[in-house]
């Protein structure tokens, strides 16, 4: 088709050679690769920065800024759950004491996993919980998002003893937390996930709260 473009002009013979065409393709590939490398280098730091900002923004929702004076991302821990999966714990330090921790918990919703970030203070009380990702039915199960409903704020200040073990359930199951009309499975999953997160805190309390001092002998140096 585009042969016609060149009809009027004199065609140098070398254009028809395989070598020219292979060189052309190879040359374009090299230029393309060089451009991509340059683009990657130019944007890498900025993109990394944006990712960190995103993470900090969601951590900031469950750990109030007044509780800590450290960089939440710098003082994270890696722990192993009972089922063998690893969990990254972000710690809010006030001086050298751990004021609060935050980590991700996951519930089994109606349509797949519900990922939440859960903030807990050093006495085992929920500072806040926020949904990071879910696939629940729009209009029914998505009331777990704080943007749509303040249901999730009911967990603030709760702990394993408050309410009692039986109370950590939706009202339909005899617990203290509201379910949504038309959706029971979603709030059930969130209640369970948060309870599981508190139990994790309880089981690892010593490791979560004590190790800051050991790891960070000199706050300045660690920065």
């Amino acid at each position: 088709m585009s042969l016609e473009v060149h009809k009027g002009r004199a065609h140098p013979v070398y254009r028809e050679r395989v070598g020219y065409q292979a060189g052309l393709l190879g040359g374009f590939s090299m230029v393309a690769a060089a451009l991509l490398v340059m683009g990657n280098i130019a944007t890498r730091d900025a993109i990394e920065q944006r990712r960190a900002e995103d993470l900090l923004a969601s951590l900031g929702q469950v750990i109030p800024a007044r509780l800590h004076d450290n960089d939440l991302l710098a003082d994270s821990l890696m722990l192993t759950r009972e089922d063998g999966s690893e969990v990254v714990v972000y710690r809010a330090l006030s001086g050298l004491d751990v004021a609060a921790v935050a980590y991700q918990v996951t519930g089994q919703g109606y349509a797949g996993d519900i990922d939440l970030i859960l903030g807990i203070d050093n006495r085992g009380r929920v500072l806040g919980a926020r949904v990071l990702a879910h696939a629940e039915t729009p209009g029914l199960g998505d009331k777990i998002e704080v943007a749509r409903d303040d249901w999730i704020l009911d967990f603030d200040g709760r702990s394993l003893g408050d309410p009692t073990d039986a109370g950590w359930a939706v009202k339909k199951d005899g617990g203290e937390f509201d379910q949504f009309s038309g959706a029971t499975i979603t709030p059930r999953a969130v209640v369970r996930a948060i309870k599981g997160g508190l139990e994790f805190f309880d089981a690892h309390r010593d490791g979560l709260l004590a190790s800051a001092v050991i790891q960070r002998t000199d706050p300045e140096e660690a920065k």
Partner: peptide, 11 residues
């Protein structure tokens, strides 16, 4: 390049 640029500056 557009993808990288937007990720960096129009996040």
């Amino acid at each position: 390049l557009v993808d990288l640029g937007m990720n960096a500056w129009l996040h």
